[in-house]
């Protein structure tokens, strides 16, 4: 299910003194099965943009097309759209409200009007997908740790079986293990055929996971390309207040010192290989 955005502009509080342009003439297209990273400094319009993709915000001007259909056309059901385009908000654990984890994950699928049996099947499937142990399902969500609760919230959206999953900083505020756990689960969901859009401030994460990056700055789409293409423009990335992954900077420093290494490398594994090649050594076998 491709998503297409055409000259999307969004202005908050139009006509009042606090009027603010959040998005300016943004256009792009996301195809089935892509893993897209959405990056940009704080206040660049990332959250505003993703809320347009499932119809929570209405464009001031421009269009959002899903499957070639303008989502604001008459006769389009926004609730159906929100089932197909799932959105996990930042600090999603704050939306949890039910008495048990199972009931909370079931909230979404129940709103779809599924049979109780199917709802329960989906709950268990979603819990497995996000790596939530089955014995936690009947506990109160308020007994869980932050990382587990985040998984509950993501499962709550995943249980609706969206074709596109949008996540706003799903790993923010978690410890390294929680972070890796959640990100690798998202990676698995993508391998299972879901289109994923990941909003993140962590450049290492997006460089490692995403096949394509959209870069927003002050409401404008300023770059659209593979992580390699985006981060090889290191000066530009720095100028808008972002920072390329450490390995990009490392490779540049090595090159400055006269090493004959490539600088268009965005993840640690590639960097290791390249440095060993330069040193004329074999890559060690990592257990």
């Amino acid at each position: 299910m491709p998503i297409e955005v055409r000259s999307l502009t969004h202005i908050y509080h139009r006509g009042s003194t606090s009027e603010a342009v959040a998005l300016k003439d943004v256009s792009f297209r996301i195809d089935n099965g892509e893993f897209v990273g959405l990056i940009g400094p704080t206040g660049s319009g990332k959250s505003t943009l993703i809320q347009h993709l499932n119809g929570l915000l209405k464009p001031t001007s421009g269009e959002v097309l899903v499957d070639g259909q303008n989502i604001w056309d008459k006769g389009m059901s926004l609730r159906k759209l929100r089932q197909r385009v799932g959105l996990v908000f930042q600090y999603a654990e704050q939306q949890v409200f039910e008495e048990t984890v199972r009931q909370d994950i079931a909230f979404g699928p129940r709103n779809l009007g599924l049979s109780e049996r199917e709802v329960m099947e989906r709950v268990e499937e979603a819990a497995r997908m996000v790596g939530l142990p089955a014995d936690l399902l009947d506990r109160s969500p308020f007994e869980l740790s932050g990382g587990q609760l985040r998984r509950v919230a993501i499962a709550g959206v995943a249980a609706m079986k969206p074709e596109v999953l949008i996540l706003d900083e799903p790993a923010a505020g978690l410890d390294p293990r929680g972070r890796d756990g959640i990100l690798s689960r998202i990676q698995e969901m993508h391998r299972g055929g879901m289109t994923v859009i990941l909003v993140s401030h962590n450049m290492e994460d997006v460089a490692r996971l995403c096949g394509r990056l959209l870069v927003l700055n002050k409401g404008e789409l300023v770059a659209d390309g593979t992580p390699r293409e985006v981060f090889s423009r290191n000066e530009f990335v720095k100028k808008i207040g972002l920072r390329a992954p450490d390995v990009v900077n490392l490779m540049e420093k090595l090159r400055e010192r006269g090493w004959n290494v490539r600088t268009d490398i965005v993840n640690v594994d590639e960097a290791l290989k390249e440095i060993l090649r330069e040193l004329g050594k074999e890559a060690p076998v990592l257990s």
Binding site: L87, G108, N111
Partner: peptide
């Protein structure tokens, strides 16, 4: 409210009782 709407919650339609009930996912958090 937006987070629950993204999960298919409906705050606008239905009779009084249904609407009051639909507020639970908003008020608890």
């Amino acid at each position: 409210m937006k987070a629950q709407m993204a999960r298919g919650a409906d705050f606008e339609s239905g009779n009084m009782v249904k609407r009051a009930k639909s507020l639970v996912p908003l008020l608890v958090p």
